[in-house]
Design a protein around this nucleic acid. Structure first.
Lengths: 152, 152
DNA sequence: CATCGATACAGAATAATATTCTCGAGCTGT
DNA sequence: ACAGCTCGAGAATATTATTCTGTATCGATG
């Protein structure tokens, strides 16, 4: 379990905001030499603190004008059903994120669709017609904002 | 409204998976010269198709072992309340993501906490004690997976 | 049908950056 | 004090990003 000092946290804060910041600028901002800075980042990657670098896209630009959250209740709450439906949900091209939850709702799936017809077909074909699924409830997403984790 | 051709989509697919891929490798994979490839990426950024490059961290590594979804219902459904509470929720250091929803729930907030005590204090101090908030319902997040948007 | 203009790409040249390697400083425990 | 360790700096090298220029292609127009 890695221990993160002040410099590590500064690096993580900067990288969260801009994953493509150059190592040189990163180093200058935290007050390290580029070589030392690079070693730190490599270590954070190797230790699993950094799990990936992702590019964020505007769904609108891809013709995905409609986002929804689909709450899923399973019929049987056995391990197998959780795994199979979980994998299925994650593999859908419309899926943005999948939450596995405690409580009345078993899964919550964030999806991005072209239009209401696309969403309608999706819910039927990939949700309610699955044998593990007992019922679903779909909510429209008006807006969605991601936030950086506090590293201090 | 930008139109994306086959190469643009290939670039977006690759960048989603690894935001730090080098322009050289990107170019080689899609079959362009580095200069042309860079021009495309710059254009995608300028057009707003690419909204940012983010580094994904393991919450566990930051000592955030407990994630929750907090469903928020407002007392008054007026525009002002939506804006003020939305800004507030987004600004919390514990916030991972904020959804503004249609339906019974007005906001759904994904938070990451150190432990149950942290979560308890958070819900009271930053949620139920806000005047705009009517009631909240907190669900434990067992697992959370993000997915890439389909660009095809 | 020729031509103008715009767009997109390639390739070379240059600037900037990443990466590796070696060295030395500071700590720790003996 | 000394060996062993960690961590960072700085130089050298390799790789990459970026700019610039020329050329081909396509579409519209006279």
């Amino acid at each position: 379990m890695p221990t993160l000092d002040r410099i590590d946290r500064a690096l993580l804060g900067l990288l969260q905001k801009d994953a493509r910041i150059s190592n040189k600028e990163l180093a200058a901002t935290v007050g390290l030499a580029p070589s030392s800075c690079l070693a730190r980042v490599r270590r954070l990657e190797a230790e699993g603190v950094i799990t990936g670098y992702r590019t964020e896209l505007a769904p609108r630009s891809l013709g995905l004008d409609l986002q929804a959250l689909i709450a899923v209740q399973l019929r049987l709450h056995v391990g197998e059903a959780f795994n199979s439906i979980g994998d299925h949900l994650r593999s859908l091209p419309e899926t943005v994120a999948v939450y596995c939850l405690g409580g009345a709702t078993d899964f919550l799936v964030h999806v991005a669709c072209r239009d209401t017809e696309h969403l309608r077909v999706l819910t039927i074909r990939s949700f309610t017609s699955r044998p593990e699924v007992s019922r679903i409830e779909t909510s429209l997403v008006f807006s969605f904002a991601r936030s950086s984790l506090a590293v201090e």
